[in-house]
Design a protein around this nucleic acid. Structure first.
Length: 575
DNA sequence: GCCGTTTTCGGCCCGACTGTTTTCAGTCG
């Protein structure tokens, strides 16, 4: 999508303008950039279908930015950006990514010390030049040096799967401090966003100092960036920045709301508060004139006073949830307890680490009504994919095993979608199975046209039920393959196929925005763990939260169906 | 630069912490 290219460009423009000391415009450009990132539709399509007017109809995009967008679509360049770039050296904006360097300081460093790049900065620190600058001092130089160090170590946002165990660990430590009433994560972790920039933790307690001392001296702390009465910031040993805020009880809801975000959701809420004569901050909702406290103990009362329904954290991305809350049109989001079973799990037969029986027992212990065993197919040699003889034996074994269990064991396979779009098992095998998941595991570098056609061909196979991890991405490790998802969704809708939400936190595929888009095509979803071990069955929770971020209700997700309904959806006479 | 049943001009979310300062600017979230 061109949206992200353009968003990045506008972020760059904002950075340059800020360094040049231009007011307000940077805010407008960043807002437009965030808006572009949250669009589910390609800006290029919007322009081609509706012209510049349609572009300008997008919130936060006005005449000037719309013109720049259309110029970029047509010529691949923006004149204004080229002009701006000429005013400051290219590497200067990089300095803004360093903790404790903002636009003002970057501009000073350039003007006074001719610092144009990270390399120049490093040299200036060694030569002790920064400490001597007016307004800087030794401490500032040390902070910049530490920021530089961190910048070189951590380039990307941590994945949610890595951060959640750390968050739980810190919460457990803080909860043990006497006098703590609440301790919970806020921020993007609470919204279950797939990657996390920094970790925000809120604590309700009257004893600020004990909390801050405990927090800043945890063994996992690498460095303390700030330590105050109500707010402290540290860098953990894994380079994750973590903030703790200590609050009064009556502010807990307001603070939770504020620190959960996202930014645009908060800003919109504050605007609404102003319209109603209030002021909203992390301390609560107040009467603008008298300063009287109106609400803030809980998020529920906050949303109520603002004239809308409670909004679940996963929806707070300023994607229309506030209007939906005002007009009472929010979805009733799916929850983990709606899930009746898992439709994608591996065993020792291919690349899993547990036996069929162990996996089935674990699924039964989770309270599931069904579990589908779906090992890899023959072409996946690296994952010990099952040959035809093996899958025939596996089917027989599962049928025997069923007698020992109350939970229904479904017989499936994660069948490779071969490069020509055919499935990796012949029809006479596929028709013996309860569930056929088709996945792409090879040729990731194919052209968009070829990959799209490959997947569409597979979707036309009558035995395929579910398209497995439809974009093939590994978060922070492998980009999704090039594929025209709209064409895929269209073909899936025509052929009544199910989209998988692969729950593994390294995948989360489909991702939230694509789930939203797919739902518009009328598609149904399967939230699967893709577990390769007993423990990984629990990862299905991540998929549920992705689904919630994609506005899904229980009815959109086939794992919430009873077996009879599932049979119908999978076009099987019975299961 | 964007936006508008108060406005087409004049606002734009709000506050904590730090360091370098004698009252505040810069940065961050």
């Amino acid at each position: 999508m061109m949206n992200f290219e353009l968003a990045e460009l506008f972020y760059n423009i904002a950075d340059i303008l800020e360094m040049l000391g231009v007011a307000w415009k940077p805010i407008a450009y960043r807002k437009a950039a965030r808006q572009l990132e949250s669009l589910s539709k390609d800006i290029k399509d919007i322009y081609e279908e509706g012209g510049i007017e349609a572009v300008q109809d997008i919130p936060s995009i006005g005449e000037s930015i719309a013109k720049k967008i259309t110029q970029y679509i047509e010529t691949g360049k923006i004149d204004e950006y080229e002009k701006l770039k000429a005013k400051l050296p290219e590497g200067l904006a990089k300095l803004l990514e360093i903790e404790s360097i903002g636009p003002k300081r970057a501009a000073i460093l350039y003007k006074k010390l001719k610092i144009e790049s990270i390399g120049d900065l490093k040299q200036a620190i060694t030569q002790n030049k920064i400490a001597k600058l007016a307004g800087f001092g030794l401490k500032s130089q040390q902070n910049i040096a530490a920021g530089l160090d961190l910048f070189q170590k951590s380039k990307e946002r941590a994945s949610l799967g890595e951060v959640i165990p750390i968050a739980n660990e810190i919460i457990n430590i803080l909860k043990k401090v006497p006098g703590v009433e609440h301790a919970m994560p806020a921020g993007s972790v609470r919204r279950w966003k797939e990657t996390v920039g920094d970790l925000d933790i809120l604590v309700v307690s009257k004893h600020h100092k004990i909390i801050m001392d405990k927090f800043t001296t945890m063994p996992i702390v690498q460095r303390i960036l700030a330590k105050g009465k109500t707010k402290s910031t540290v860098i953990l040993k894994n380079n994750l920045q973590t903030d703790v805020r200590v609050l009064e009880k009556r502010s807990f809801g307001a603070a939770l709301n504020y620190f959960t975000g996202n930014v645009d959701h908060n800003i919109t809420l504050r605007r609404i508060a102003i319209e109603k004569g209030y002021k909203l901050s992390e301390y609560g909702l107040f009467d603008r004139k008298t300063g009287k406290f109106i609400a803030g103990r809980t998020e529920e009362e906050l949303y109520k006073k603002l004239g809308m329904r409670y909004i679940e954290p996963e929806l707070r991305e300023n994607r229309g949830e506030i209007n939906a809350a005002i007009s009472n049109k929010l979805p009733k989001l799916i929850t983990l307890s709606d899930i009746r079973g898992d439709l994608h799990a591996h065993t020792k037969w291919s690349d899993g680490t547990n036996t069929i029986e162990q996996m089935v027992r674990a699924a039964q212990d989770l309270g599931y009504e069904f579990i589908c065993i779906s090992d890899h197919s023959q072409t996946q040699a690296i994952a010990r994919g099952l040959k035809i003889g093996q899958i025939i034996r596996q089917v027989a074994e599962i049928k025997k095993l069923q007698k020992k269990f109350k939970i229904k064991i479904l017989i499936g396979s994660e069948v490779d979608i071969l490069s020509n779009g055919e499935l990796d098992f012949p029809d006479e095998i596929l028709k013996k199975l309860d569930v056929v998941i088709g996945s792409v595991h090879s040729g990731f570098k194919s052209s968009k046209e070829k990959m799209t056609q490959r997947v569409i061909t597979a979707l036309q196979n009558k035995y395929l039920n579910i398209l497995g991890h439809p974009t093939g991405r590994l978060i922070n490790k492998r980009n999704p393959y090039e594929i025209d998802l709209k064409k895929v969704f269209d073909a899936a809708a025509q052929n009544k196929k199910i989209m998988e939400i692969d729950s593994h936190p390294a995948r989360l595929d489909l991702k939230d925005e694509h789930i939203l888009l797919a739902k518009q095509y009328g598609l149904k979803f399967a939230i699967n763990s893709d577990a390769h071990s007993v423990e990984q069955l629990k990862l299905l929770e991540f998929g549920v939260h992705s689904a919630r971020r994609g506005w899904l209700e229980a009815g959109d997700v086939i794992n919430t169906y009873k077996l009879s309904g599932l049979a119908k959806t999978l076009h099987r006479t019975k299961l």
